[in-house]
Amino acid sequence: GLPVEGIIKLLVTAIGILASVVAAYPSGFGQLQHVGDILYATVYLFFAISGLVDVLTFYCPYAIPYGLNHFSLALAFTIEGLMFCLHLQRQAFMEQHVHVLLVCAIFACAVVSLIEIVLPYSLLMKFARAFSSLIHGSWYIQSGFILYDPNRVTPTQWNSSQDYNNALIWISLTFAWHAAGAFICLLVIILIS
């Protein structure tokens, strides 16, 4: 009886926007210190718009154009992907590599959501959206551990370029394993259901 998904999106993004804005202004609202956090707040804003469209679609189904919920979700993913593309500049190659893989997962979510506008009842597209969201989320978590591992005290020192190249290959492999894990998770839930 309630648009649960839309309400959860609005609540989670409201927390995200507040946390990002507070992090961007650590010394008060006069001095912006971390513009990157404003970038995160902007990404949350588009997911909040998507949640709002979900709620409006639930309560006013005849007023909201058909497929606008999928469009707003696709827009949110596209903006998120574009914002992370900006992360690619002026970064070490390893950070770029992690973010390129993340952007691939984000744009996969965006493309599937766009296709759902024209194929709203396609079960395959619903699973594709779930699958790409699973990879997106799990790689997001993995990125946090690769780039900002709280257990790592000192920055990693590379003994040779070969070690560095091997680390990049490991990152690609880990992404592929995340994809495999997400697909197996999807299959298990389908079978249990």
Binding site: G16, K126, A130, L134, G137, Y140, G144, C185
Partner: peptide, 24 residues
């Protein structure tokens, strides 16, 4: 670190919900 892990967990949760929605 939390800026990556928390949104990631949210996307995983949505992915699981969408999988359940599609399979039931």
């Amino acid at each position: 670190f939390a800026g990556y892990v928390l949104p990631g967990a949210a996307f995983v949760a949505f992915g699981l919900k969408w999988t359940l929605d599609a399979s039931t």
